[in-house]
């Protein structure tokens, strides 16, 4: 680098006084292999009236030559990765200062200073595609509605079996408790359960069916028997 200095100085004399901004994209946790970036990865330096554009080089560095004095926004356009913008200030003496900046915030509101050459690290890997919501068993099972359904199904199937294995005294107590609670629901369900098909087919009217009170009483009494 030092050896080239006289040549660069010569060259700089020929053109207007201007700085060289150097940087690189190092390997990082988000982007372990920057060489995977496509050849059209573009880095731009923008300020009013000036737009410098360069491609990422084969060794994952970038160089802007002949950058005149000013305050620039540095942006990176790379497929699959998002970078945050940087503020690059090029001074009169060709010194380059790099600071963190945020879009939409005041330009004078800068963050931490960064070193030169600029190291660019992507903030995140980005995806171009929307995932289509297909059939997902795990997701379906984690839905609360399905969970409620499963719990009630389990209680219907396994609770009677559980009851059978229970201590007879406790069972009797439990049944008595249930009886109290389920009078109303039983009445409704037993209306259907007590549908007398034979009498219906025999052409008997509804009057012949047992009275609701009776039905509820008798069926409740049979509750335990039914579940054998």
């Amino acid at each position: 680098m030092k050896l080239l200095a006289p040549l660069t100085a010569l060259y700089l004399l020929a053109s207007a006084s201007a700085a060289t901004v150097r940087g690189l994209i190092p390997a990082s946790t988000v982007l372990p292999n920057p060489s995977e970036l496509p050849a059209d990865t573009t880095i731009t330096l923008t300020t009013a009236g000036e737009l410098h554009k360069t491609f990422l080089r084969w060794d994952n560095t970038f160089v802007f030559r002949n950058v005149s004095e000013g305050s620039y926004v540095l942006d990176v356009a790379a497929e699959g990765y998002a970078f945050s913008p940087l503020r690059v200030d090029v001074g009169k003496g060709e010194e380059v200062a790099v600071k963190q900046t945020w879009r939409g915030r005041a330009w004078s509101n800068t963050g931490e200073s960064k070193g030169v050459p600029i190291e660019l690290r992507p903030i995140q890997a980005t995806s171009y595609y929307q995932v289509r919501e297909g059939f997902n068993l795990l997701k379906m099972l984690s839905s609360p509605m399905i969970l409620i359904a499963i719990v009630s199904l389990v209680s219907i199937v396994f609770l009677p079996k559980l009851l059978d294995k229970m201590d007879p005294e406790f069972r009797a107590e439990f049944e008595a408790h249930q009886k109290k609670n389920s009078v109303t629901t039983d009445r409704m369900t037993n209306n259907i359960a007590n549908f007398d098909a034979a009498s219906f087919l025999a052409g008997m009217g509804k009057s012949s069916t047992p009275a609701p009170a009776q039905a509820s009483g008798s069926s409740a009494g049979q509750g335990g028997n039914k579940r054998k």
Binding site: A14, A39, T54, F55, R57, W58, R65
Partner: peptide, 12 residues
Amino acid sequence: GNGRLVWENAFS
């Protein structure tokens, strides 16, 4: 081979 930039330079 892959179109990556090796170097560039600009003049007046």
